[in-house]
Every structure is written in C-alpha cells, then in structure tokens.
Amino acid sequence: MPISPNQGSTGGGTLVTITGTNLSNTSAVTFGTRPATSVTNVSPTQVTAISPSGTGSVGVTVTTPGGTSNPVPFFYVGAPFKSSLSASSGPLAGGNTITINGTGLSTATSVSFGGVTATPTVISDTAITVVVPAGAAAGPVSVSVTTAGGTNNGLSYTYIADPTITTITPSSGPASGGTALTVTGTNLDSTTSVTFGGAAAPFAVINTTTLSVVTPSGTAGAVDVVVTNPAGSATAVGGFTYVASPGI
C-alpha cells in the first residue's frame, strides 16, 4: 500500500495519497495513533488524507468495513532553518548561483526570492544551491525555502542594477595622477572598483549617484573609465585624459 508523499511537516497539513485495494468506504486513516484531519475516498484503489501533527516515523493505516490495513511508514520532517547565504546580493538579471546553508534542507523543493521561485539542488541536509531568478526591481527581497517540513523565512537578498556613468568632473589631469574628481551616474552605491585605463583608483561612495575618486598615474592621452559593481560594469570610453607634464 504505497503512500505519496511519505514525509511531511511536523505541524501536519500534508495532503497524502494512499494507493491500494478494497479502499471503498474508508472510515478512517491513522498516522501512528492520531487520525487524519481529513479523509476523501477517491476510488476503490485510492484514498487521500491530510496528516495530523506529529514527530518521527509513524505507521499509516486505512480502516474500512473489512478491517484495518497493514501500516506503511510516514516520516515527519521539521521546518527548515536557514543560517546564511553565500552571497547576499547580485545582479538584477539573476543567473548567479548561491549556496544556502542551514539545517533540514534535504527535502527542499523550492526557494523564493521576493515571490519569484527557483528550484534548488540539494547538496546535503545542511546546504542547497540555487540559481537566482531575475528580480523585478533593484533592492532587497526576502528569501524563503520550502521543504517537506514547511517554509522558512528570515534571510534577505539584494538585487543590484548595472551602474551607469553620466559625468566625470574634471575630465583631465596630470599623468602623474592624484587628481581628485567626481563621477556621477546611477547605481553607484554598490561600486566595487573604479579603473582608469585598467589601473585601479581609490574611491569613496558618496551616495547612489556619486563617487569621489582619485586618479592613479597614467600615460598621456585619453583612457577609458570603468565603474564596476556586483551586477556589471559601466564604461566611459575616453572619459578621462591624462596630460603630460611640461618639460624645459
């Protein structure tokens, strides 16, 4: 007498289907010593029932006017617990893979990012991986994991949009470097690097639209300025011009 699924939440409420023979006029389905909260006779070979709350492994039996069946095992699973995300932010377009660590994750069937679901890959009871789906808008969303034991919330993931560059002021300076300048644009608050012709520059985030940057040394001529955040990069082609020092 198969039962599907054969595991469910300790809080009960799992709809299970029991398949067998002579199941007409089923009067009761019992999980261990506790009756199911609902029983529906589907056909002479199938009954559905909603599990009561419970713990551990219990035997499920079906009772009809002809008697009580042999027990089949049903396993109660606790709700999952999430302890951390391997990355708490990523591109708005999604597509990056992150690891969720916790306990009770071996039966994970879905992960929700702000209501957008993705199917995880179970690594072990303490870890799953999931490809982050695209987000609706930049900003934080709640992350929930659903397993046979229920759904757990409590972690947050932040979607980040690609940066843009609007202006670089001033747009020129000595090849020796050291020019303090301002970069304006959008989505700059999560900037991870700024480069001038490939050379890294020290910078400070002022706000989401403004960076304060000091130019590294370079070679006379125009160079590309690239601003990068976890979502991607923005390039101002020839955005800064290095000016050679005068010679006498």
Rank of each mutant, 00 (worst) to 15 (best):
T37V: 15
N41Q: 10
P44H: 03
T45I: 15
T45Y: 14
Q46Y: 03
T48P: 07
G59I: 07
V60M: 02
T61Q: 07
V62T: 10
G67V: 07
T68A: 08
S69I: 13
N70M: 14
N70V: 14
F74A: 01
Y76Q: 06
V77K: 09
V77T: 15
F81I: 15
K82R: 12
K82Y: 06
S88D: 11
S89V: 10
G90V: 02
G90C: 00
G90H: 02
P91G: 09
P91R: 01
L92T: 02
L92R: 00
G95K: 04
N101Y: 13
G102L: 04
T103S: 15
L105R: 05
S106D: 15
S106L: 14
T107R: 13
T109C: 05
S110P: 03
S112H: 06
S112F: 07
G115E: 05
T117Q: 11
T119C: 12
T121P: 01
T121H: 02
V122F: 08
I123E: 01
A127F: 09
A127N: 11
I128F: 09
V131D: 02
V131L: 11
A134Q: 12
G135V: 07
G135I: 08
A137I: 11
P140I: 08
S142A: 15
S142L: 14
V143Q: 02
V145L: 06
T146D: 10
G149C: 09
G150D: 14
N152F: 12
G154D: 13
A161W: 05
T166V: 06
T166P: 01
S172W: 09
S176V: 13
